[in-house]
């Protein structure tokens, strides 16, 4: 009997990417994924730049889905990783996808089993531009995201991690149960960034105090973004964004602005940018504008697809 195909050895919801450069061209030596995850390479990649879409069947993730992507990017290989439409996280419910065959971990609690989890693990020797659409958690959804980026000293990284308040057209505004996001950046053996955001449906306010919901705390904004920028290919973006930031002088305002942002330098080649906006579209346009100089690296065809 012959060995089963390689894909059969990958558990459900898993994906692998191995992308290397041979001087003037790059190739995917591996690009595989299993239901409910789909990784699709676009043919638009030119020279050393590759474009992969990370998708899920049915256009969203349901409770219990566990997505895990491992990727290795060789020296000089530039990978742009996008999603199509926002990552929708449906409500947690006590049933999981019919086709889910992986065993639930015995030690994890029920709520963890029902949470949707997404893990990305990247070894980067070239560059990764991870610029997905924002995560939108529906009412009662529970989402765990863990992203680890291990960079060689000359590697570059742009990570956009953002979320919206939910389906506002249906009146959902910060109505999800839990959103957890962890981003770690390592350069060689040193961890330089560990960014953890946790949003939970609020506990009842102690008696005698005005009620304070998650929506109240995050008002008036409906979209929050964190942008991590590191390495040589991001220096133009970093220089430009830092210069604009340093020019800002805040005089006392009577009401909050429609969009607000901050820049914190991590080391000489890395910054963390945070943005909040009343409208997702405003945040998107702002990000696209700030990252404009990446077009010189990706080429116009691919850049057009980012923030499309």
């Amino acid at each position: 009997m012959s060995d089963p195909p390689l894909i059969a050895k990958i558990p459900p919801g898993n994906g692998r990417i191995h992308f290397i450069s041979h001087g003037i061209r790059s190739t995917f030596t591996e690009l595989s994924s299993t239901y409910p995850l789909k990784l699709i390479a676009s043919r638009d990649g030119t020279d050393n730049v590759g474009l992969v879409y990370i998708l899920s069947y049915g256009g969203g993730l349901v409770g219990g889905d566990q997505i895990e992507v491992k990727a290795i990017l060789g020296p000089d290989a530039v990978l742009v990783l996008l999603s199509q439409g926002s990552t929708k996280v449906f409500r947690t419910r006590p049933s999981i996808r019919q086709a889910t065959v992986f065993p639930l971990q015995a030690q994890s609690t029920l709520s963890e089993q029902l949470a949707t989890t997404q893990r990305l693990d990247f070894d980067i020797n070239g560059a990764l531009f991870l610029l997905p659409e924002p995560v939108t958690c529906f009412k009662a959804a529970s989402y765990n995201q863990t992203q680890t980026f291990r960079l060689s000293p000359s590697a570059s990284l742009a990570v956009l991690d953002w979320f919206t308040s939910g389906r506002r057209s249906l009146g959902e505004d910060w109505a999800f149960t839990r959103y957890y996001s962890l981003n770690e950046v390592w350069i060689a053996d040193r961890r330089i960034i560990k960014d953890v955001t946790l949003l939970e449906k609020h506990d009842p306010t102690p008696a005698g105090l005005p009620p304070r919901s998650l929506a109240d705390k995050l008002a008036p904004y409906a979209c929050y973004a964190t942008l991590i920028l590191c390495g040589p290919l991001l220096q133009d973006v970093i220089t430009s964004i830092s210069a604009q930031y340093d020019q800002i002088s805040v005089f006392k305002k009577s009401v909050p602005q429609d969009l607000i942002w901050s820049v914190s330098q991590i080391n000489c080649a890395s910054v963390v940018v945070r943005v909040a906006g009343k409208e997702t579209e405003t945040v998107k346009q702002w990000l696209k504008h700030q990252l404009g100089s990446l077009e010189a690296v990706t080429g116009p065809e691919i850049f057009q697809k980012c923030f499309a």
């Binding site: 955001t197 901050s262 945070r274």
Partner: peptide, 8 residues
């Protein structure tokens, strides 16, 4: 961190 607005 549980208050991203406070961070900004």
């Amino acid at each position: 961190n549980t208050w991203p607005l406070g961070e900004i």
